[in-house]
Amino acid sequence: MARITAGTATTDSFGLRAWQAVRAINPVYFIALVLLVWVGFRNPAFYQPDNFLTFLQRAAPLMILTAGQVFVLVSGGFDLSVGSVVTSTVIIGAILANNDPGATWWVILALLAGGLLIGLINGAVTTYLKVPSLIATLGMLLMARGVGLYWSGGAPRGYLPDNFRMWGRGGIEGLFGLRDFPYAVIVLVVFGVGYWLLLHKLNYGRQLLALGDNPRAARLSGVNVNLMRISAFVLCSMTAVIGGILLGGRGGVSIETGTGLEMQTIAAAVLGGTMLLGGRGSIPAAMAGALALELLFTLLNLLGLPKPLRDAVQGLIIIAAVAYTAYSTRRNR
């Protein structure tokens, strides 16, 4: 996004330079800002810290999932299995834990191990069998959901214990003088900062972006292409498990928990300027894209639109935003 304009800056007026500086900012931040102001305009109570944190708690799973998806997207792949992994995390978590608070920790570990395995399979199938990631993860979409539903017999069974659900709906009472500081927001900040460091500050991220930009050049310059690809899928699947833990905590056990999330994460990432087929993307911008989507849902709710029409508006906004991004990148060239 941040394209450097060639050098006659000294003769430019202040206004022009300011305009160029604004132009260099990823448009997703403006979209999110406009939505934020609009929501506050419709519902001034939205800005009260407690209410805003509750909103962030609700937005956290999608933002974290989107950050995970970005790793696969910038490496040049897709992960369509995210939603199924989320659903199965919730279903299988409920069966394994079965309302026993003592089981929570090993259940979370087991679920993460499951995510690791799914990521490894996705990665291995794409790199070694050379199956396009769209198809490989589509197969995994069917398999992951199938395993969850087969295990539970098709209907949710068992309960998630309270200390499992606290991650999604609980908080620390009285922190910063607030009523309740949600754990989900803490998780969001930890993963947001961690993934930002990983993709933008560490060598790993540079190699991954190089790989997505030009696999051949990356391989010739010594990047372990297969390892990088597989690691991106593993990261994404394990993030999906984290997202599932948060969503299961908030909404309880349902076989619809993760439905549609794979496309929402991809749409949010693209809204944030992530390029499909790899090479470019930013964690903060993608997370802002996810935030913008959640703000949009809130706004449409406040405007009193029936739920189905929200889908339609979401579709329109995604098309418009991506068309604008495509247009502005073309113009900058």
Partner: peptide, 21 residues
């Protein structure tokens, strides 16, 4: 010049929304 995956997903969402409404 919208990526086909995103464009047709968006159109699909619009169709679904209008239909379900």
């Amino acid at each position: 010049r919208i990526n086909s995956l995103i464009a047709t997903l968006g159109v699909g969402l619009i169709l679904r929304g209008l239909l379900n409404a």
